[in-house]
């Protein structure tokens, strides 16, 4: 019963804040709305017995990534979004068809498919514990671990270079 309530709350929160992200005109509000959506998803993770993932979600996503967004929004200042002429024009129809197709397809796939065991594992397993995740990461997914390490290195270097050129563009060093 508790899980159902949690799910309902989290689902409504996630979809609501998600709609906010998409439809708020103001970038600042959209970013704040994203925080709400991320927190709702973290709540879902807890309901799914993944507390570590939920913690990372809150710390990394809501804490770091969205803060970065807010910084940039603040740095660039208020800028009006162009609403005049959309060069995509009638091609947007194609895109909307694609969105509809993908949504419908997903719904059909979810409803028509048979997912795994009929009786899921009991709620007492420690599958979401940091220990289980750490063991799985180091024992089975070591290549993925190394790959994301490299990705982070690349991202760091890229960010430094972009920032440097941006600073130089304004006459700094």
């Amino acid at each position: 019963m508790g899980e159902k309530v949690t799910f309902a709350v989290a689902a409504i929160g996630a979809l609501g804040f998600g709609a906010g992200v998409v439809f708020f005109k103001d970038a600042f509000r959209a970013a704040v709305s994203l925080i709400g959506a991320l927190l709702a998803v973290a709540l879902l993770f807890i309901a799914l017995l993944a507390p570590f993932a939920a913690a990372v979600q809150v710390i990394v996503y809501a804490g770091a990534i969205v803060v970065m967004f807010l910084f940039v929004i603040a740095y660039l200042g208020e800028r009006g979004e162009i609403t005049s002429f959309d060069r995509l024009d009638r091609w947007q129809v194609v895109g909307w068809l694609g969105v509809l197709g993908l949504g419908g397809l997903g719904a059909v796939a979810v409803l028509a498919s048979d997912f795994g065991p009929d009786s899921p594992a009991p709620a007492t397993t420690g599958v979401g514990s940091p220990q289980a995740i750490g063991e799985a990461m180091l024992a089975n997914h070591i290549v993925a671990l190394q790959a994301i390490a490299v990705i982070m290195l690349i991202a760091t270097v890229g960010a430094v270079i972009l920032a440097k050129s941006a600073v130089q563009g304004e006459g700094g060093r």
Binding site: L88, W91, Q92, V94, G95, L97, G98, V99, G101, L102, L105, G106, A109
Partner: peptide, 13 residues
């Protein structure tokens, strides 16, 4: 992005 989405949906179908 449009084309990508359309392609994914077609492939999925």
């Amino acid at each position: 992005a449009f084309w990508m989405v359309l392609g994914i949906s077609l492939a999925g179908i």
